[in-house]
Design a protein around this nucleic acid. Structure first.
Lengths: 112, 112
DNA sequence: CATTGTCTCCTACATCTGTAGAATCGTCAA
DNA sequence: TTGACGATTCTACAGATGTAGGAGACAATG
């Protein structure tokens, strides 16, 4: 649903056609979703070309990811440790990632 | 909604009464949720005491968390690094957590 | 101006989820 | 058996989300 972040600003048609042909929704479906996202202030109409609106993301992908992470964190009782544990278990988190995280933590210093 | 994991097996009444008084849902609301969770095979009826069913979780909290994490990970393109970055930025991930993660990774060895 | 093609707007339907009242059923006590 | 109390089942409604058809608006073309 939010694959439009990859496109930046785009018209309904552009978005719809960029979607994987496999099970691609109808043009009006994309239109509806955009309208609802607009109502939610997640996107906005940047301008109009001919009779078509160009939609532009208001919330960035990063911001959305942050939101999601916070929600997940809440589900974990606000503690990141169990989350990290899972990441390790599933082999998604490499030693290198952890090393970088360590450096970031030490270098930052102003946490907590 | 899934605060029943804290209780283990319990009846509708027990669950409902354990919920925070603040905005506690009606008995039938809890009942409905349980019924739907049962249809989804997330819980099951363990047994019956008098005329009340005792519900029991089928999926553990951990399994649910794993699911959630995997979903989030998918949204991050399968890479854990950005996720960890956010954790650090929001101050949720302590140096101690990272150290433990490091040990787990080294001690494990069979990842990747 | 009429035609055609595209886009938007309005409306609609299905499912999921949260919420809960009404009716019914079952159990326990007298 | 009858009454009371609590649990289950049935039904319903609202909001969010995914899906999409039909009607009308608007631009390009002849």
């Amino acid at each position: 649903m939010e694959a439009l972040w990859e496109l930046g600003a785009a018209s309904v048609r552009e978005i719809q056609e960029r979607l994987p042909a496999k099970g691609r929704p109808a043009h009006t479906t994309v239109q509806t979703i955009l309208t609802r996202l607009e109502a939610k202030q997640a996107v906005r109409r940047a301008k109009k070309i001919s009779n078509a609106y160009i939609y532009e993301p208001v919330v960035t992908r990063g911001a959305t990811q942050r939101l999601l992470v916070d929600e997940l964190l809440a589900f974990f009782g606000g503690r990141a440790a169990p989350l990290v544990s899972h990441l390790i278990e599933s082999g998604q988190l490499t030693l290198q990632d952890v090393e970088e995280a360590r450096k970031a933590l030490k270098g930052d210093g102003k946490h907590g």
